[in-house]
Design a protein around this nucleic acid. Structure first.
Lengths: 136, 136
DNA sequence: ATAGATGCAAACGATTTGCAGTCTG
DNA sequence: CAGACTGCAAATCGTTTGCATCTAT
């Protein structure tokens, strides 16, 4: 749960890393697996999971949880940004909040916390879905 | 997925609601189940899940996900507050951020979103865990 | 009566692990 | 060569569902 052991340089880990580097989206392990397979890479789902885990542990990628409990990953971005997503169509808008980030950091420090990391998820009904008169 | 159907007034749902009303903590379904059983209530785990789901749908309780993907519930509080938690010992501090809440609401509206709901989770290493020289 | 509520067992979906074979440093 | 890495199948774990049985209204 805490070892950042020596890693070998393998083709698959490299591919997983590259795929994430080339996307600004948060992707699920299953999606990463499907994408790599469709690129003709015969990688196994287990390997994808293990590599995403390793990359997360090494701080190469960030991991998050969707509201359904599914894990999603994205390459670490220098700028922290958050998400505004529609609970009906899952449309997502990336937003940043410098003030918010500072607040979170300061707040955590005041409470004696270090090595801070935070995430903000805003859920709502987007315009088109509201129009469609979706039942909640 | 969207029906707030007519609910009957039953002993079990009442107990689940009361248990949550009496706690400021976020509790998992399993915990709620265990607590009710230890009170001598012969309720089934399935029923706990179904009631927590119903209460969440009716807006009586709020549901969240832990970093392990587990769902946790708490009675809705009039004031929105967020969490600062230690990634090692899971110690949590409740914090409020009026400015943040306004920012989130305004931001969502600007993007045409309605029926907004947001959550902020801040993770870090708390003082005691940092002292203990925990391996990351 | 009649539709919602409940319990149990089986089903599920995402993630993890055991194990044997493979490959990197 | 030793220790990482990989794949497959089986195991977990939290949560959901099918179904027959109760029970509130």
């Amino acid at each position: 749960m805490s070892d950042t052991q020596r890693r070998r340089h393998t083709r698959y880990r490299q591919q997983v890393r590259e795929l994430l580097s080339g996307s600004e989206e948060f992707l699920s392990a299953q999606t990463v697996h499907t994408m790599l397979r469709s690129q003709g890479l015969p990688i196994g789902l287990t390997t994808v999971y293990r590599n995403l885990q390793a990359l997360t542990k090494d701080g190469t990628v960030d991991a998050l949880r969707t509201s359904t409990g599914e894990q999603i990953f994205r390459h670490c971005s220098p700028v922290q940004h958050h998400h505004l997503m529609c609970r009906h169509c899952s449309r997502a808008v990336e937003v940043t909040g410098p003030a918010l980030d500072q607040w979170a950091t300061a707040l955590a420090e005041v409470h004696g916390f270090t090595d801070i990391n935070h995430s903000v998820e805003i859920f709502g009904t987007c315009g088109s879905c509201a129009d469609t008169d979706h039942q909640i």
